[in-house]
Design a protein around this nucleic acid. Structure first.
Lengths: 151, 151
DNA sequence: ATTCTTGCAAACCCTTTGCAAGCTA
DNA sequence: TAGCTTGCAAAGGGTTTGCAAGAAT
C-alpha cells in the first residue's frame, strides 16, 4: 500500500520533511532524469529511461527513490488515469496545469488564472481552508487525432 | 481511508452512451447499494457490502458492473490516494466537480461552467479533440478546520 | 565499522480475462 | 433459442517487501 504520500498535485501546507537520504549513484541518476524532464513520468517509464541511458537502476530502487523524493517534498506526485503514480520535479514556482494526450502522452503546460481564482473562491464559499486543487485536461493531440479517429 | 487524492475523475463531455445492459439481479443489487451510499466506494468495498448483505455478487462481476455503469455515465469515477477506482452515484445530474475534505472525506459537488468553458477553449486552441477533464479541489472542510487549527 | 541502500525475486493487491454454465430478452 | 452475463480461477500489471550483498558516512 502506498504510504502517506498524499498524491496531490501541489505543495502541501504540511511539509513533513523526511530525513535526508544518502547520496548514491542511483539517487543521483533518478534525480538527473527528473531534472531533464518537464512532464510527469511514471516509475516504470523513468526506469526504462535509465536503462536506455545505461545508468541502470533496479525497478524496486526506482520505486523507493521516487517515493522517498515525494515524501521529502522534492517532487510532485499525481496519478494518471490508470491509477499509476507519476512524478515531476516541482521546482517550478509557477503553478500550472496540463493538457495531456491520451494516446501518445504528449503534455502541454497551460496556465489558468481564471481557474485558480474560481477554485479559491469556491473553496472559500464553502468554508474550506488549506486548499489546493488539481486540474488536468485529457484528449487526443492533433497528430493522434489525425491518425486515430477512434479508441 | 481514501483521503485527499487527486487525479482523474468524472465523465466526459462526450457521452459515449454505451449500449443498454440487461437487467440482472447482480446489476440491480449493485445499483441498489449505490443508491444508498452518499460517499465514494471502491469496487472491493462495494463487493464486501453486498456479501454482508447476503446479496452475493462475484468480485469480477462487481468490477464489470461498476465499469459498465461508469461508461454509461450513471456513476462518477474517481481515484483515491492509493490509485483505486472509487464510484458514486451522483446526486447532481450533469457535469460537475468535487470539493473534497482532505481530513474527513466529505465531498461537496460544485459546478463550474467557467472552468468547463476554459477547458474546452484551451483544448481547442491546441488542436486537441475528444477532450475530457478533471478538476478536484482539496482542502479542510469547516469542521475539520475548526478541530484541526494547530496540528 | 556501522548504518543505510541496492538488487533480486517473491509477495501483494487491485483489476482484467478466458471459458463454461446460467439467465435475459 | 440466441446472445449477453455471471462465476471461478488464473493471469496481468503496478507496487511493495524480505533479505543478503554492497555502498556511504
Amino acid at each position: 500500500m502506498s504510504q502517506g504520500a498524499p498524491a496531490d498535485g501541489s505543495r502541501t501546507a504540511v511539509p513533513a520533511a523526511a530525513k535526508e537520504q544518502r547520496v548514491t549513484k542511483q539517487r543521483l541518476a533518478v534525480s538527473a532524469v527528473l531534472d531533464e524532464l518537464t512532464d510527469f513520468v511514471s516509475t516504470q517509464e523513468l526506469h526504462r529511461i535509465l536503462q536506455d541511458r545505461g545508468t541502470s537502476v533496479s525497478l524496486a530502487t526506482s520505486y523507493r527513490i521516487l517515493q522517498s523524493l515525494a515524501d521529502e517534498g522534492q517532487v510532485d506526485v499525481l496519478r494518471n488515469a490508470d491509477g499509476e503514480a507519476v512524478y515531476r520535479r516541482c521546482a517550478v514556482t509557477g503553478h500550472h496545469h496540463h493538457l495531456l494526450c491520451r494516446s501518445c502522452g504528449k503534455a502541454v503546460e497551460v496556465e489558468a488564472p481564471a481557474v485558480e481564482a474560481w477554485a479559491a473562491r469556491t473553496a472559500t464559499e464553502h468554508g474550506f481552508t488549506a486548499v489546493e486543487h488539481t486540474v488536468e485536461i485529457f484528449g487526443l493531440c492533433p497528430d493522434c487525432t489525425a491518425r486515430n479517429t477512434g479508441r
